[in-house]
Simulated assay, not measured.
Amino acid sequence: MGVKIEVFRMMLYLSFPVAMFWISNQAEYFEEYIVKRKREIFPPDEDLKRKELEDFKERMRVRKEQRTLRSFAVDSEN
């Protein structure tokens, strides 16, 4: 009787992870759940938002460049 129980337990221990792996790797599940969720969290870029972000990056780059030039001017005076 003990061997049959051990075989059943071993089959249960091995079948559960294999079944979960098989279920989670179904293409339909991936498409329906993961891709839709990703699109909710990270919506596709809109042209207006992209332009605003590029303008912001350019302003920050110019500001940093001006600060760097000022620090070089101060260093060269001393």
Rank of each mutant, 00 (worst) to 15 (best):
Q66W: 05
I5Q: 03
A27M: 11
F72N: 12
F16C: 09
K36W: 03
Y29T: 09
K57F: 07
E65W: 00
I41A: 01
E28M: 13
D47L: 13
L48Q: 11
V74W: 14
E6V: 08
E46D: 12
K57L: 10
S76G: 13
S24C: 09
E40H: 11
E65H: 01
V7G: 02
E32C: 07
E58M: 03
D47C: 08
E32H: 09
Y29A: 13
L14W: 06
F30I: 06
V18E: 02
V18S: 04
K64R: 08
M1A: 11
F42G: 02
D45N: 13
R61D: 00
E58I: 01
K49R: 12
V62F: 00
F56M: 10
W22S: 11
V18M: 05
K36C: 05
A27V: 08
D47A: 13
Q26M: 13
E46R: 04
D45K: 14
Q66R: 11
S76I: 12
A73Y: 15
Q66Y: 09
Y29P: 01
A27Q: 12
W22H: 12
R63D: 00
E31A: 13
D47H: 08
K4N: 09
F21T: 03
V18K: 03
E46F: 06
K4D: 07
S71N: 15
F16D: 03
L48N: 10
D47F: 12
V18Q: 02
N78S: 15
E77V: 14
E65K: 00
E46Y: 04
K57Y: 10
E54T: 09
K49F: 14
